[in-house]
């Protein structure tokens, strides 16, 4: 188990190096720092001096990969790659275009992001699984058909509609909660309840239907027949036998996103003005602040890999057959 985890962590390194190289290529090779400067300063009538100054301020004036002017290790370290990309391995994200530390911003914004994402995740999981179980229990009846039809309808609706529609009905028509904004502490409840509700709503269709498929697949297996042959009631069969087995495929899809909850949701946060990492990312995209986007890409993949490892660990909890090696 420990050996397995160590191997997984070691295996994560080349993946992160790959991500790092990919972002580096994307941000510094496809478009050179000169292009970036021209872009930021306005494409037309930019003096070479202004570009140089812009690059210097941000440390983009160094050579990309190898600094032939420097000596010793500085040949490699005094470069854009080392200082802008490689440094991310120690979670040093540098500064955004407005001069703030990205690392500090991330720690500050994780809280609000989690305040939305975590409850959405938990409430969602419970709702989706319950709905799917309900459909499974009444499988091949009109209720099940209606449930599936509802799921297809719900998953055909754009996520933007849930947000816009929800804001319009709940906040604007009924004045139940503020349209947007965020406050810490006990006040936060009224700000987060609608985003959470909408977040859960947005996933009902696809998730419930997917879980239903998993349950139905399990219910067709031989051990379920054995359980029925013992004289167990259909509910007992569903809850003690099917649910336990269905958790295994469900976990694959679910555990991996848990670390990513820190990243928040781009859409929800920007619509509701939540000062989390999602809206941070959106703002950076709109402002074309590449250092922030780069940092978020790297952070995202680190969290994803953590999620993968967590998934493996969770398997050992629910599936006795899995002994990690």
């Amino acid at each position: 188990m420990i050996a397995y985890l160590i191997r997984r962590i070691i295996y994560a390194v080349p993946i992160l190096i790959g991500v790092n190289l990919l972002t580096f290529a994307l941000f510094f090779v496809v478009n050179t720092p000169d292009d970036m400067a021209r872009m930021q300063l306005g494409v037309k009538r930019v003096t070479p001096e202004a570009i140089e100054k812009w690059k210097q301020q941000r440390g983009y004036d160094k050579p990309l990969l190898v600094n032939s002017a420097a000596n010793g290790t500085a040949k490699l370290t005094d470069t854009v790659f080392w200082q802008k990309s490689a440094s991310m391995f120690v979670l040093d994200f540098g500064y955004s275009d407005d001069g703030r530390s990205i690392g500090r911003e991330i720690t500050k914004r994780m809280g609000p992001s989690l305040a939305i994402a975590l409850p959405t995740f938990l409430v969602g999981l419970v709702v989706y699984v319950s709905f799917a179980l309900l459909m499974t229990l009444f499988r091949a009846t009109a209720l099940d058909m209606a449930g599936v039809a509802l799921c297809v309808l719900l998953m055909s609706v754009s996520g933007l509609f849930y947000i816009i529609g929800g804001q319009f009905v709940v906040s604007k028509l009924w004045h139940l909660v503020p349209i947007s904004g965020y406050a810490g502490g006990a006040d936060s409840f009224k700000f987060v309840v609608l985003p959470i509700l909408i977040g859960v709503m947005g996933g009902v269709g696809s998730s419930s239907r997917w879980y239903r498929t998993i349950f139905l697949e399990e219910i067709g297996k031989d051990y379920v027949r054995t359980a029925r042959a013992k004289g167990l009631s259909e509910l007992r069969v569903l809850f003690t036998h099917v649910l336990k087995n269905a958790m295994i495929p469900i976990l694959t899809g679910v555990v991996v996103v848990i670390p990513l909850l820190f990243m928040g949701s781009l859409l929800t946060e920007s619509f509701f003005g939540i000062p989390g990492l999602g809206s941070y990312t959106i703002d950076a995209i709109n402002a074309q602040d590449f250092s922030v986007v780069r940092a978020m890409v790297f952070l995202g993949s680190v969290l994803y890999i953590v999620g993968l490892i967590l998934t493996d660990i969770s398997y050992t909890v629910v599936d006795p057959r899995v002994r990690l090696q």
């Binding site: 494409v43 990312t281 890409v297």
Partner: peptide
């Protein structure tokens, strides 16, 4: 290759690539 690509949250990867593509076209 696919683990690297899928480890980046897709919206972020799309955003990063689109930003770069946009800049490239503008240039």
């Amino acid at each position: 290759i696919y683990t690297v690509l899928s480890s980046i949250p897709s919206v972020l990867l799309i955003a990063a690539m689109v930003l770069m593509m946009q800049m490239f076209i503008d240039q």
